[in-house]
Nucleic acid binder design. Structure first.
Lengths: 213, 213
DNA sequence: GGGTGTGAAGATTTTCACAGCA
DNA sequence: TGCTGTGAAAATCTTCACACCC
């Protein structure tokens, strides 16, 4: 399959909306509602959904439950995935305990840091290890995703090790830019760039947009 | 001015690269280097820069210092901006003390939460207030940016109050989708959507992309 | 040679417009 | 009527190709 990046981005957000609609026991949702929630047009939503080959119910909109199920199956969002966090500073430890991840299908199964001190002080039910153990643990636990929350300066090094250890996707919260081989799926979540994006948009007059990250 | 959204996104990231090149005292950088750092092509970089009306030095690439200065001036990224954080859980407090923001020109000047308990317990040099004081404080301190780190369920309510109080941009870390009037610049930094984006890309064969958050 | 700058071509993405359906 | 589904048109974004410059 070969979908537009933007479509994938939007579908992931749509999936999140469906999740909360499901919790609130809403049965049907229209392309217009979804469009409003994620900040796009109803045409785009319908096109996205149709690109995935999924079909709704005329006149009533889409069945929340079945749309969620179908999108999930198509993009394999229903599969549970294991992730680890490297860098257990304040952000890293906050993410370690971010309960939402688990309920959304991403289980954080390990944390890594180089400071013995931190490893000892951390109170969490998730196992934490020294970075030197990363390669073993990742292989052993079949971890697919790496979340980088180290300070700048050794983010690249950490990324290289994650890749060597076998993860296929990396989410980078550090401000440092990272270069990865193109078979690795990589997403940059630099907070400063995000704030700058907003600030820069103050002086342009375009419509808002989600910007995947 | 009316720039492509993607261009703005990339320029904000380029700006970050320039910042770190400057720290490392690198004098010149080529479009190719920048392309590699942010994950795009050199054509795109040159086009982006030229869209902003900025010009480099043939053969040597761009002067780091002057490119940074010009991009900064054009997109007003050199201007200091004040921000506040609403929701002082673990993520919110981590961001309160995220020192990088200040050095990047974004000063966090207030934190808000509804729990008196949290307000009392927090150790930080930044002033914290009850949410009921938001409107006053935001006006009084001329805060332009709101960062939402409350748990889902009242993110929309918080956004509405931020807007009423006068912020022009919102960065939303909560998993809840928020609807804002279109004159407000809004960016969604939902972690789960980001992880899903990566997971979904596992089954497609497209090149990586930055996706603004 | 090794880089930038940029119109034009090409590719992709979004929007439009309308058929179809319950 | 109200909403989906989808080709076709429009708009946007990226890549190409080559002039130009030190």
């Amino acid at each position: 399959m070969d979908l537009p990046n933007n479509t994938i981005d939007r579908v992931c957000r749509i999936f999140g909306c469906l999740e909360s609609l499901e919790e609130r026991q809403v049965d049907f949702v229209s392309s217009k509602d979804l469009a409003q929630a994620i900040g796009t047009t109803n045409d785009t939503i319908r096109k996205d959904i149709s690109l995935l080959g999924v079909t709704g119910y005329t006149r009533k909109g889409y069945s929340v439950v079945s749309l969620k199920k179908e999108l999930g199956q198509t993009l394999k969002l229903d599969k549970k995935r294991k992730a680890c966090i490297v860098g257990l500073g304040r952000l890293g430890t906050a993410l370690l305990d971010y309960e939402r991840f688990k309920q959304d299908g991403f289980e954080i199964v390990a944390g890594f840091d180089n400071s013995i001190n931190k490893l000892e002080r951390i109170k969490t039910h998730i196992d934490v290890f020294a970075i030197s153990e990363m390669e073993n643990i990742i292989a052993q636990k079949s971890i697919e995703l790496g979340i980088i929350t180290v300070p700048a300066n050794n983010a690249q090094e950490v990324a290289d090790e994650l890749i060597k250890a076998g993860v296929s996707g990396i989410l980078n919260f550090s401000p440092e830019k990272i270069v990865v081989p193109k078979e690795i799926i990589y997403l940059d979540m630099d907070f400063t760039s995000a704030l700058r994006f907003i600030a820069a948009r103050f002086i342009t007059n375009k419509l808002r947009k989600s910007r995947v990250a």
